[in-house]
């Protein structure tokens, strides 16, 4: 998994574009309610946010293919992410 922090675009390791992350509400991850090991609920929009820290590229692509509007959380410190510019 790769992310460009400037454009907030997320790609697979092979370079395939997955999604551009955008949230106009700016709710912090810690302010969201934990729903499962890798998901939280945003109180503002009531959507489920998926933590990408434990996802591989296949899981990520499948998730976005099933729901292109799915919300993701990427932490720049997570081990499965590479930062690109």
């Amino acid at each position: 998994m790769k992310i460009n922090p400037s454009t907030k675009e997320i790609f697979t390791d092979a370079g395939a574009f997955v999604k551009r992350l955008h949230c106009p509400i700016h709710v912090k991850w810690k302010a969201m309610k934990k729903m499962g090991v890798d998901t939280r609920i945003c109180f503002e929009c009531n959507k489920t946010i998926h933590d990408t820290a434990s996802l591989n590229d296949t899981d990520l692509v499948r998730l976005i293919n099933n729901d292109p509007q799915a919300c993701l959380r990427v932490n720049l410190n997570q081990e499965n992410i590479k930062i690109i510019h």
Binding site: L21, K30, C71, R73, N75
Partner: peptide
């Protein structure tokens, strides 16, 4: 660490 880490991108 994620609870107060900086560098989260959500969307």
């Amino acid at each position: 660490v994620s609870s107060y880490a900086i560098g989260d991108i959500i969307g």
